[in-house]
Write a protein that binds this DNA or RNA. Structure first.
Lengths: 370, 370
DNA sequence: CACCCCAATGAGACCGGACTCACTCCAGTT
DNA sequence: AACTGGAGTGAGTCCGGTCTCATTGGGGTG
């Protein structure tokens, strides 16, 4: 029963020999191209079956130039937002015969450069990426130049003409902020994981990715529209690890003009903020209003149910994959930014600001403002 | 400025030509093997730099036989448990120069067969898989036979001698059930996504994966040890999609001898169960005690904080990758099941059974039993 | 000074498919 | 009957690396 240790797989040549035809004929029969007589086709196919022949995808890629593989370069698989997006992309791609190679960058440019390099070396047919830093894009341009179509997911890079799939985060953030302002909140905290030169936002500071820049931009927009001057110290960056998120939250709460509402830039940040609030025995929304980006399955179940700015993560993955497939099909229409709609889902974590409690109607329970 | 559209990448031959040496010499200098004089090495390396030479990983794989790629075949990336495990594996693998190809199976055997086939065709050096069905393993054996070392994640397949990384789920489930029994619960519901011939467990039924079989086994163990006969109708299977999970929960609650406690087989099931409980205005843990497998970041934050049976998902991924690397290094020690320790984290979703409320001490607030 | 050894080098085989080219038949034209 | 055309076929090249093998030449040894 114990066969030779590694009965290495049959090749076209093996099949050809078994079928008593030339390698070329066997390849034709197997590949379904060129002219092959019925009897030969039968013999070859039977022999292949018999030998359990499977084409070597590597060899095939060598001279077709295509590998039927798409590289996905994102910050972190374990972030449910990206997890879902990957799933969306992966579903579409597989349906079209493509496989997915994955790389995590942790938002580090060097890791991203590495990843892109590897993808190129492996001759992926295309790349889906969430560029970590809009200012370090040489490797991305290199990938494009090498002929690998690319689609940006969740972000775009100003000045780079590349397809992208995003959500109208600026509008969404603006809307949420406007509602908070209307509820009497003046200090609105914002905590994000983006890497920035300082932990506190400084006017005019440029952020490495559009995704967070838009969130913050939307908030500032709303302040501007309301004619109110926000305190930059309310905007906290560099909060990626649990400890730094905690520190940022603490810092916010310890401010003399501490914000009465907090917006978390994503669900992972949000979770940690909530923990700190709970530890400090601050009630949400009575003491502090809270909302976050990304609607997670658990957001309606925590206490209180969280008001969120939802992004269609799965659909974003689908859209990115679809756009990429379009490029692979040879489309050369100008690069296009696809902006999907996000949605503010009002639950119970937002209420009128403490001091304004008499002026505005209650927001508890998910009643819409206005 | 606009160069030729696809200035296809430089090859060893190009570099050799530029450096005025033979292809063989260039290859030696580039690959760092064989004997190469210093001046030649310089010239070649400079030329490579100049031409921006990058070796074609495909071509390399063709004759080394190794692709520096590991296939990961799991049910679903978007399940945070697998997401974290993938991250763990991916971190270790990348550190050792391997890349990861991903495939989702949705627990469907046909998708799994497909995925494995593709991996083999791409000549992955090894495979990490969570086999969907312990009875349909021909393709897995084929992979082993083809010389691809494999490691099972989260599951093992009885009768297949393959490395695996698991958690002592049976003990964990047994412990949890024992505590529930001690708290006076007699009816303990169990809801799982496993595919089974019927939606209700039937004694002697074999389940397709060890992971769920162990969970259920542990529960039955505890019943047996306590000398109590469980009602098989308390054990609900086939609850994968939100609707089926809801239906299973409803069915459980509508039973004449409805369980007073529910164990969810994973966090995605748990979330849906919680929603149904909430809709029915059933209080946790006053009306129904609840606990679930997998500790998610949100489990302490929902209302009430959820008691969980935690699995070290990230570490499991790390362990699986480590085991695989060991095999790739040529180790031929007998296959080994690595069993990591899970942990019961007691929070506030478990309390004494209604009828037994006078006999047992309160469990609210995370106090351990006994 | 003849001899040996080995560093240094180039030519070319090879991995496993995809594909080109040249050649053979034979049916269909004219 | 000579001629065209395309189906059917095999030999062989190519993709871009890795690696074997044979050859060269200079330094060390007896």
């Amino acid at each position: 029963m114990n066969e030779s240790p590694a009965p290495r797989p049959a090749t076209v040549a093996d099949v050809a020999r078994a079928a008593n035809v030339s390698k070329a004929q066997a390849a034709r029969a197997l590949g379904g191209y060129g002219a092959v007589s019925e009897p030969v086709r039968r013999r070859v196919l039977d022999a292949a079956e018999e030998l359990n022949y499977r084409p070597n995808a590597l060899a095939r890629s060598m001279n077709t130039g295509r590998s039927q593989t798409i590289g996905v370069v994102i910050a972190e698989v374990e972030n449910p937002f990206f997890g879902l997006a990957i799933r969306g992309a992966s579903d579409v791609l597989r349906r079209h015969g493509y496989d997915v190679v994955l790389a995590n960058t942790d938002e580090r440019t060097d890791a991203e450069e590495d990843a892109i390099r590897v993808m190129l070396d492996k001759r992926v047919d295309g790349i889906i990426a969430s560029p970590a830093d809009a200012d370090a894009t040489a490797h991305l341009s290199a990938a494009m130049a090498a002929g690998s179509p690319m689609v940006f997911l969740d972000r775009h890079v100003p000045g780079m003409e590349v397809d992208s799939v995003e959500v109208d985060l600026r509008r969404l953030a603006g809307q949420a902020t406007a509602e908070l302002l209307e509820l009497g909140h003046r200090g609105i905290g914002f905590i994000s994981a983006v890497q920035a030169p300082s932990d506190v936002y400084e006017p005019g500071m440029t952020l490495p990715n559009s995704s967070v820049a838009d969130r913050l931009g939307g908030i500032l927009d709303a302040y501007a529209r309301a004619g109110i001057e926000p305190d930059p110290r309310w905007m906290r960056l560099n909060a990626k690890a649990p400890e730094t998120i905690r520190a940022a939250t603490q810092a916010l709460l310890d401010l003399d003009d501490a914000p009465t509402a907090i917006i978390a830039s994503d669900s992972m940040v949000g979770l940690e903020v909530l923990k700190v609030l709970r530890e400090r025995s601050l009630r949400v929304p009575e003491d502090v209003s809270f909302l976050m980006f990304d609607d997670m399955a658990w957001s309606p179940l925590v206490d209180p149910p969280i008001t969120v700015l939802s992004q269609p993560a799965y659909d974003m993955g689908v859209a990115a994959a679809t756009a990429l497939l379009e490029r692979l099909r040879g489309s050369s229409t100008p690069p296009c930014r696809r902006v999907l709609e996000g949605e503010m889902i009002r639950r119970a974590s937002v209420a009128p600001a403490r001091a304004a409690v008499d002026e505005a109607p209650s927001m508890v329970g998910g009643t819409a403002v206005r």
